[in-house]
Each structure stands twice: as C-alpha cells, then as structure tokens.
Design a protein around this nucleic acid. Structure first.
Length: 299
DNA sequence: TGCCAGGCGGATT
DNA sequence: AATCCGCATGGC
C-alpha cells in the first residue's frame, strides 16, 4: 500500500476536507467509519474518506483524511495527483472570495465554511449522481450512488477488503430498468440507463471548450438532464466555476435576498444571479451559500 | 396524512 | 416560450 502526505500550508486560504466532501456537491465519496454525511452539522473530526478512481489505469481505492495541516492518503496507487485534481487544491480561495459580493449572507457563508473547495468529480459519476438528484434528499442521492457502485461496479481489493469502483458507462448501460428500480431510483431509473448508453455510444460529455451556456445546452441532450442538472455537472466536474445551479434552495435565496434576479426563465435568472455573485467564480459562492443555508440556516 | 426533497419529460396552450 | 402534470421513494 502506498501512502503520502500533502502539506496544506501552501494552499491559499486553506482547505477543509469535511465541508468539501459533505456539502452536497459530490456523491462519489463515503466515510470509512460508515457514518452518514451530516445533514445538519459538521462534527469537526478527522474521519477517513474513501473514493475510487480510474485516473491511473485500473480502478483503485483512495483513502484520505485531514490531520495536522495535511491530507494523509493511502491507496494502491500514487494518489497525490488525483487528490490535487479532485479536490481542486490549486484554487486560490482568497482570490475567489475577493470576487464575491460583500452581502451579509455570502460573507457569513464564507466565514462558516471557510476552507471548503469545489470538487472536480469524474464527469460520468457526476452526471449520473445529479440525474439521481431530481426531487431527492442529499442523503438518499448518496445512498443511490453507493448502491450503484456495489451492484454494478468492478470489485477492487484494498487493504484486505473488497470495494467497488463507480460503474462505467458500459456497466450502467447494460443494467435493466428493473434492476435500477430495485435500487430505489424510481422514475430516474430509465434516465440513468439511457444516459449511460448515450455516453457509451459517444455522445460528448466532456464539453469543456464550449462557451458556458452552449455547454449547458449540450448536456441537456442526455436524458434526465435539464438546465439545473447540467449546471451541476458543469460546476462540479467540468471546471465551469461560473455555473450557478438554480435549485430549490437557491430559488428561495433569490426570493429573499436577490429578488431583482428573478427573470421568469432559467437562462435569464441564472445570468442575473451569476452577475450578482461575482461572475467568474459565481458557482463557488453559490456552493458556499447552498451549504450554509442547508446546514446552518439563514436565521 | 400530506408535503417536500439540489427537477425533468412530454403535452398543451 | 410559458405552464401544467405525472413521476418513485422515503422522512417527517
């Protein structure tokens, strides 16, 4: 087993693993102690987190925790570059925060969860997990991804235990709708199967390089992907830090704090909120606000 | 019980 | 281009 330590003292603005992984942006990690991700508070501990990667060839498990100003990791492969990429350790939080508006809500969100980074998830896992997210609680979206891994993913032995990699497009495309419904995916089951098939058949998923709004439109070609889910994939997997997913929480925020941004349709409202939240890194600020409202409330 | 959860597809207007 | 409706499942 390989292991290593990533010193966090040179990450501008710092880094916080728990808020990064438990803020409802990624559903591709789980806790080694079996605890569910906290819905209402952060425990402030040093738990190990696990995920799988295919970035270095064969699927591998990565285990990581934050301790003494560093990320400590263990894996069957050299995971440092994967972690730096997946956890966006190069992001400059001070510069990002400086681009955000001075509004009370925004500043309290940054204060409360300072150190949270956006994730950079693998695009396919991000796509499927956010297809599953429609009208669903964060904890159950997470459970669905666990079920998909354990039912359809390639077994991977690590540290004497068997884990399962996140399924490939081919593995999910080969699943039947009934098999997926048995995992409590509900009406999302055919969306997951069909979108996996589209990826498998070559429909472009990595749309980086396209202008933002065109990229969002492109992703809606997948089944079960509307503008909101497309924005999530762009923000949490494809480096579009300006993407501002308009979910129920953010719509409440618009009603309460940014009523002028409501334009009656997704494209124009999104555009207005994007400008209100500072443009280039609006999605970063949105993610802080989303996490803050969901967990700490806005009282 | 009825309402809601990081909405979407399809039909209707 | 807007609006309405049905859709699975589970927690409260």
């Amino acid at each position: 087993m390989e292991h290593g330590r990533i010193d966090l003292s040179d990450v501008p603005g710092g880094f916080d693993l728990q808020s990064t992984l438990e803020s409802g942006q990624s559903y591709l990690w789980w806790r080694a102690d079996g605890q569910d991700f906290a819905d209402d508070h952060l425990y402030g501990g040093e738990a190990w987190y696990l995920t799988t990667t295919r970035a270095l060839g064969e699927p591998a498990v990565i285990r990581v925790r934050q301790r003494d100003g560093a990320l400590e990791w263990q894996s069957s492969v050299d995971a440092e570059s994967v972690l730096r990429r997946r956890l966006r350790l190069d992001d400059d939080l001070d510069a990002i925060r400086a681009s955000a508006p001075p509004d009370d809500l925004v500043q309290r969100a940054y204060d409360t969860y300072w150190g949270m980074h956006l994730v950079r998830d693998p695009a396919f896992g991000s796509l499927i997990s956010f297809i599953c997210s429609a009208q669903m609680r964060v904890s159950r979206i997470h459970e669905m991804q666990q079920s998909l891994r354990e039912t359809f993913g390639t077994p991977v032995t690590f540290d004497g235990r068997t884990y399962h990699a996140y399924p490939t497009p081919a593995q999910l495309a080969a699943a039947t709708e009934d098999e997926l419904r048995e995992l409590s995916l509900g009406y999302r089951a055919p969306y997951v199967r069909k979108s996996a098939e589209l990826v498998e058949q070559g429909t472009p998923l990595d749309v980086r390089g396209q202008p933002y709004e065109q990229a969002r439109e492109s992703l809606t070609e997948f089944v079960g992907v509307g503008e909101k889910v497309a924005d999530c994939v762009l923000l949490f997997a494809l480096d579009y830090t300006q993407a501002v997913p308009l979910d129920t929480w953010i719509r409440k925020t618009i009603d309460e704090y940014y009523p002028g941004c409501e334009q009656g349709n997704y494209t124009d409202t999104s555009r207005a909120l994007r400008e209100a939240l500072g443009g280039e890194y609006a999605g970063y600020t949105q993610t802080y606000v989303f996490h803050f409202l969901r967990n700490a409330g806005d009282g």
